[in-house]
Amino acid sequence: MSVDKATVKRIANLARFRIEDERLEPLAGELNNILDWIEQLSQVDTDGVKPMTSVVDHALHWRADEVTDGGKRDAILSNAPASEFGFFAVPKVIE
């Protein structure tokens, strides 16, 4: 499996990175080096092996249905690059 410029562009788009066209080729090379290297995992027979999603082997702890948070709009907005009338403000989205 090898990534080309178009794939790099698609992945950059999914991850929301602006990448200049002249960077696509070198980046494809870097990613391919890493992907080629991790490719060695295909040597291992993993048929029937359970995938591990967490090393913690107990079940989820549940919270009670109580309102214990919120009511801190100033704190929530305190780091916002832009806010208006108590809202976060972002460049206009055209639907």
């Binding site: 919270r63 249905d65 109580e66 309102v67 919120g70 709009r73 704190a75 929530i76 009338f85 108590g86």
Partner: peptide, 23 residues
């Protein structure tokens, strides 16, 4: 429910913007 699925903020409808918001 009183609180949200993964936080303790209120689910109340029609509150001031960003007032029922936890970190």
């Amino acid at each position: 429910s009183n609180a949200k699925l993964f936080s303790g903020a209120s689910t109340e409808f029609g509150s001031e913007p960003n007032s029922n918001v936890s970190l």
